[in-house]
Design a protein around this nucleic acid. Sequence first.
DNA 1: TCTGGGGTCCTAGGACCC
DNA 2: TCTGGGGTCCTAGGACCC
Length: 357
Amino acid sequence: MDKRKRIILHVDMDHFFTAIEERENPRYKGKPIIVGANPRQGRGRGVVSTCNYEARKFGVKSGMPISKAWKLCPHAIYLPVNRGLYMNVSERIMKILRKYADKFERWGLDEAFLDVSFKAKGFDEAKEVAKKIKKEIFEKERLTCSIGIGPNKLVAKIASDHEKPNGLTVVKEGEVRSFLNPLPVRRLPWVGEKTEARLKEMGIETVKDLAEANPIDLKEKFGVLGIQLYLMANGIDRSEVEEKKEIKSMGKDITFEEDTLNPKLIKETLSKLSEEIHKRLVKRNLYFKTITVKVRYDNFETHTHSKTLLSFTNKLQDLKDNVYLLTKKFLEKKRKIRLLGVRVSRFISSEKQKKLI
DNA sequence: TCTGGGGTCCTAGGACCC
DNA sequence: TCTGGGGTCCTAGGACCC
């Protein structure tokens, strides 16, 4: 085990999707831009994926229903999610970032962790590395990012969010406690709406409250997460920066424009979803074993049915047959369907599969 | 004639991340 | 206000094996 103190950077691109759209279309500059579902004059059913700072001035936020965004800011420029474009830009940025790291971990399209413990001797040098990174990304891609530096991933991640956009926040070991203590628990990773509410019931609202809570109580209430929460609140995070190796599952969901019971539409949609997933499987050379179908009814109630096959397959027909079979169970309910989803999991690579035969 | 204990796999649901 | 689509991980019960 290496005893050297760790120095971790978290790089977070500023409002990534809308920043790319602004760059590609200079005439959008200075105007509110919202990337997400089609607003359909306020009748759209998706959510806001990303919005720029001009749109945020009107109260628009990511994750918000697109219909609400329309009410707040009808004159914004509404754009669909151009995932292919963002993925290309992301690839180039990750390539830049990787050069600066001893160890590298991509986190979604627009974030990454860099362990620079060897490349930088101390936090001051790490700060210089961060400045270089920002400079190179801006020169090559005309995009800005916010960077947090800390003794572990947890602190780096929270630090990158501290000052945005185009921020740079350094939190050294000795400063971790005073940095974290005043924050609301919601700022910690894995604390979402539900966990925040349950903590509040226990009288825990700030990170300081959580750090001073009884870990036994937390473990009882939250299981593994309870221990994790206690450690995080005390600034402890030993998780390594490491690139995730293999994908665990692959799926596609579709929300209908209107809730439906139309058997023809349902069958066609299931076919399309299966075909899309099959394409991605072939591209990655994967065989799968488990199929899951997801249905969301008109009242947002969501259920899944899944089936594990006796052996691995990569055949489209196997996928479709099982998807239809699993969906049948849902259709018997005669309730209108809002969303359909198909997911496959438990993979094996084609090379390994061939060895099995 | 009332039944152990450990391990693994499968299924369903739910919270959370970006 | 009315809730996307891409994922990961955890929990809990039941089946099944030895």
